[in-house]
Computed example of a mutant assay.
Amino acid sequence: MMAEPEATRYGLALHTTSPQFGLALSDGVGTPRSRVWDLGRELSVHMHRLLAEFLPPQTWQDLAFLAVANGPGSFTGTRIGVTAARVLAQQLDIPLFSLSALAAFLQMTVADAAPNELVAIQLPARRQQVFAAIYRRSSDGRTWQTWRTETAIAPEQWQQELAAIAPPIRLLEAPENLGDTVTGLLELARWEWAQGTRSHWSDAVPFYGQHPVET
């Protein structure tokens, strides 16, 4: 199979699950170019303008794939980001990798995990719960594989689950602001792309974990 032209190897990642808006762009060879903005509730007002300003000197036609954080986190931010990424991927007719914000955090912050090591992660949620998951470091040490699917859970129940795992595993808590982990998101998507995965935009759905309205 012939190698793809260099201009078509760029990947663009969007991270909107927290009060920050993160963008990262890379061709898989050089250092990724990234930027983070503290937008809070102004995400929908500024996102498209910031995207257009961030992309040059590359163009939309240079992109081979997109990646988006699909949650957990802010309901509104996650919905806006996933919707925008789906529209872009559909219009550009390129793959869209919809990936966990928790996995992106691990990719950026845990460099010392041994191959196949389990690491637990939690993120504060509403209604006295946490978003929680467990990931296994891949055997080649390059990515993370889901070992315990993300869920919203009471802290007491989560601690009981962790206590039942032997030997004990590390537990990390993700911060409120996750925009700067967009580079980790792009790394995970790049790994999937290199394996030949071509995720369709229609498969990208948000993970909210909780209903947005109190009942």
Rank of each mutant, 00 (worst) to 15 (best):
R41E: 11
V119P: 10
S44H: 12
F54W: 08
V205K: 13
M108V: 00
L99H: 01
R148A: 10
W193V: 02
G30Q: 08
S199D: 15
T83D: 02
A204V: 14
T17H: 15
Q157C: 05
V68W: 01
G81C: 09
R41V: 07
G40C: 02
L186T: 04
H15V: 03
R126F: 12
W144T: 01
A114G: 01
Q195S: 11
W193Q: 05
V110R: 13
L171Q: 06
E6N: 09
A113V: 03
D62Q: 10
L178D: 01
F75N: 13
Q91H: 14
T78F: 00
S139N: 11
R79D: 07
E4L: 15
P115T: 00
T146S: 13
T78D: 04
R148W: 14
A103Y: 11
M47S: 14
P168K: 12
Q195M: 11
W191N: 15
E176F: 02
V45S: 12
G22V: 06
T149Y: 00
T146M: 13
R190V: 00
L25C: 08
N70W: 00
P206W: 14
V130P: 07
S74H: 06
L172H: 12
S98A: 10
E173W: 03
R127Q: 14
Q145S: 08
W37Q: 00
P167A: 10
G81I: 08
Q20F: 04
L178R: 15
G141L: 01
R41T: 13
E6Q: 11
R86S: 05
A189E: 13
W193K: 03
